[in-house]
């Protein structure tokens, strides 16, 4: 029953919608379209996110958008977000300078189940900008290396100039205890590595399916081809983790924008076990080029 006597203060009522301030302490242009922002909550309090979780970043007047953390929670003094230039807000975020403030609220959602992954082999499959949330997990595993078995990283980019986090990638490659497979679909004269989409090296990777958890993030086209390769390797559907992108508005399972059949991606995801997506028709995106038919 509604309590007619208890109307809380205004800031408590809107607390879900109201961002905290965070200061930009670093900014790097990674590619033409991608900027990396390093941020620090103005309150000095840690956000304490898990790899795979996201937050809502906003600039008053430009609005708000969900972005996955791309730094590891083991990096405690600050956090990082990778912003792709796609609209008014993200373009304004690209214009930020160190010292500027942004609004943040979160973290939200279920990230990668790192506790369940302890002791297991982890197969990372990253396509394009999908490397951003996976970098959070990879660097987490790098800092907690003994908690995990094999760490296998398969990362595909469209072309060499669109590869993100090149320094991290080189560091992962240099480690004896990480197995790395890098590929580009459209090589140029500088590229000496593998050629093809991410499924090409993935097919070569030998795993022990019973011991392996796969973490997959990439463009929509990628998921089903990767799923097919992983299932061909006899992996259990429950051990395949997909992180899905939706347009979260509220982050608390209310606004309806991220609904995937009966699930709210912002609450139940964005990281899902493949098992959860089976039979949910809206998990795999479809569209008709002929709009009139819709």
């Amino acid at each position: 029953m509604i309590d007619h006597d208890a109307v809380p203060p205004a800031e408590d009522i809107t607390r879900f919608y109201q961002p905290e301030l965070a200061r930009v302490i670093g900014k790097w242009q990674m590619t033409e379209m991608m900027v990396l922002l390093r941020l620090q909550p103005a309150s000095g309090e840690r956000l304490d996110h898990a790899p795979g979780q996201f937050l809502q970043i906003s600039l008053p007047g430009y609005g708000e958008a969900p972005i996955s953390f791309c730094s590891s929670p083991t990096q405690t003094d600050s956090f990082e977000l990778c912003v792709q230039s796609v609209g008014n807000l993200s373009e304004a975020l690209h214009d930020l300078r160190p010292g500027d403030f942004v609004g943040v609220r979160g973290p939200y959602g279920h990230g990668f189940p790192v506790e369940d992954m302890r002791g297991r082999d982890v197969l990372i499959v990253a396509g394009g900008i999908g490397i951003a949330p996976l970098r959070s997990l990879i660097n987490y595993m790098a800092d907690r290396r003994r908690d995990f078995g094999r760490v296998i990283i398969v990362y595909g980019a469209r072309n060499p100039s669109e590869r993100l986090f090149v320094e991290d990638v080189e560091a992962w490659d240099a480690r004896d205890d990480f197995e790395t497979w890098f590929t580009v679909d459209e090589p140029d004269e500088t590229w000496t590595g593998m050629t093809g989409v991410v499924t090409v090296p993935l097919r070569e990777v030998e795993i022990d399916p019973a011991r392996t958890t796969a973490a997959v993030v990439g463009p929509p086209v990628m998921y089903r081809y990767v799923a097919m390769e992983l299932l061909n390797k006899q992996m259990a559907e429950d051990d395949i983790l997909f992180s899905l992108e939706r347009r979260f508005k509220c982050g608390m399972g209310k606004c309806g924008h991220c609904q995937l059949n009966d699930l709210y991606v912002c609450q139940d995801g964005p990281v899902f076990r493949y098992t959860q997506l089976i039979g949910r028709t809206e998990a795999i995106e479809v569209w008709a080029p002929d709009e009139q038919k819709g």
């Binding site: 469209r158 479809v286 569209w287």
Partner: peptide, 14 residues
Amino acid sequence: YTVPESYPGETLAY
């Protein structure tokens, strides 16, 4: 039905 590509030719590449 086609899943929208993040760059032209992506589906064919897969």
